[in-house]
C-alpha cells in the first residue's frame, strides 16, 4: 500500500501513464473484495428472484414447479391486498418522515444552541439510535397495552382499557410512534450537521436587517440547509418504506397494518410460495427504486454534491 506513496517524479509522460496504470490496478484490487461481497448477497439473489418469479413454486412441493410467465406479477398487481399494503407503507413513510423532520429539526436547533450538558444530550439522543428496533417495538407495544402499559393511564380522554391494537388507526399510530422514537435521532444528527454549516455572519446580518426569528428560519436557515434536509429525507424515507421489524413485533400484520415488506416476507417465509414471493420481492425492489427516483427528482437532491467529493 505504502510503496505507492513514494515521491513521484514529475513531468515524465510515460512514467505517469505507467504509474496511473499501476494505480488503476491497485485501486481495483483494493475494492474487489467489497464489490464481490456486496454482489454475492444482493445482485446474485436478486437475479435468482427474477428467475424464480416466473414460476409457480412452493417449498412444500418443489417437484411441481411450473413455468407461469408473468402471471405472478399479474396476480400481485391486480390484487387489492398488494395495493392496500403499498398504500399503508406509503402512509408509514410519509407520516413518520414528516414528523421526524419537524421533531428532528427542533432537536437539532436545541443541540446547536445549547452550551451546557452537551455530552448528556448527545448520549441520550444516541440511545434510541443504537437500541435494537425489536426492543423499541416491545417497549412501545407493552406501553400501549391496557393490561400492563401506562399510555392509557397518562393520556387524558382515553379509557383505561382501550385496546390500541384492536383497530387499524390506533395500531398504525402505535407502530408509527415506535418507528419515530427510534429514528428521530438519526434525522436530528444529520440536520445538526447541516445547521453547523450555516455561517453566523449571515444570521447576524439578517438580524441587523430586522428579520424576525421566523423570517430568519425560513429565509436563511432552511434554504441553506437544503442539501442536509434532502439527504436526511431521502435516507429516512427509503428506510421507512422498508418498515418491517416494528410491525412484526407489535401487530404481526394484524388489523391491516401490514407493509409491503411484511407481505413479501409472509409469502416467502411463512407461506413458502417462493414463486409469488420472488415476484413480490422484485416489485418491492422496483418500488424502492421508484421512491428513490421520485424523491431525487422531486426535491432535486444532488447526491454527488451532498454526500461525495465535497
Amino acid at each position: 500500500m505504502t510503496t505507492l506513496t513514494a515521491p513521484a517524479p514529475t513531468g515524465n509522460k510515460p512514467v505517469i501513464s505507467d504509474r496511473s496504470r499501476a494505480e488503476n490496478r491497485l485501486g481495483q484490487k483494493l475494492i474487489a473484495p467489497a464489490i464481490v461481497l456486496m454482489l454475492l448477497v444482493t445482485a446474485f439473489p436478486m437475479l435468482r428472484a427474477i428467475y424464480l418469479s416466473v414460476f409457480d413454486y412452493s417449498l412444500t412441493a418443489p417437484d411441481d414447479r411450473e413455468f407461469v410467465g408473468l402471471s405472478n406479477y399479474l396476480t400481485a398487481l391486480t390484487d387489492p391486498l398488494f395495493w392496500q399494503t403499498t398504500g399503508i407503507t406509503v402512509l408509514y413513510m410519509v407520516v413518520t418522515v414528516a414528523v421526524e423532520l419537524v421533531i428532528g429539526f427542533i432537536f437539532a436547533m436545541v443541540m446547536h444552541r445549547v452550551i451546557f450538558a452537551r455530552g448528556v444530550i448527545r448520549t441520550s439522543i444516541l440511545i434510541p439510535y443504537g437500541i435494537v428496533t425489536v426492543v423499541s417495538g416491545f417497549a412501545w407495544q407493552f406501553a400501549f397495552t391496557s393490561t400492563n402499559g401506562f399510555v392509557n393511564g397518562w393520556l387524558p380522554g382515553i379509557s383505561a382499557d382501550f385496546n390500541w391494537f384492536g383497530e387499524t388507526n390506533s395500531a398504525v399510530i402505535a407502530i408509527m410512534v415506535s418507528e419515530i422514537w427510534k429514528t428521530t435521532p438519526f434525522m436530528s444528527l444529520l440536520l445538526l450537521a447541516g445547521l453547523a454549516q450555516i455561517s453566523e455572519d449571515m444570521l447576524e446580518a439578517a438580524q441587523v436587517d430586522g428579520a424576525t426569528w421566523w423570517q430568519r428560519l425560513w429565509k436563511v436557515i432552511i434554504p441553506n440547509m437544503r442539501a442536509a434536509i434532502m439527504v436526511a429525507v431521502l435516507f429516512r424515507a427509503l428506510d421507512a418504506y422498508r418498515i418491517f421489524d416494528n410491525i412484526f413485533v407489535m401487530t404481526n400484520g394484524a388489523q391491516k397494518t401490514e407493509s409491503i415488506s411484511f407481505l413479501t416476507y409472509r409469502q416467502t417465509i411463512e407461506q413458502f410460495q417462493l414463486g409469488m414471493g420472488s415476484a413480490l420481492s422484485v416489485l418491492l425492489f422496483l418500488s424502492v427504486l421508484l421512491v428513490a427516483f421520485l424523491i431525487v427528482r422531486l426535491f432535486r437532491v444532488d447526491l454527488a454534491a451532498a454526500r461525495q467529493e465535497g
Binding site: 397495552t145 391496557s146 393490561t147 382499557d161 385496546n163 391494537f165 384492536g166 383497530e167 388489523q255
Partner: peptide
C-alpha cells in the same frame, strides 16, 4: 374483553 382482537390463550387467564 377489552383486548378481544388480540386475545390469546394467556391474556384471559388473569
Amino acid at each position: 374483553q377489552s383486548d378481544l382482537s388480540v386475545s390469546n390463550e394467556g391474556t384471559s387467564l388473569g
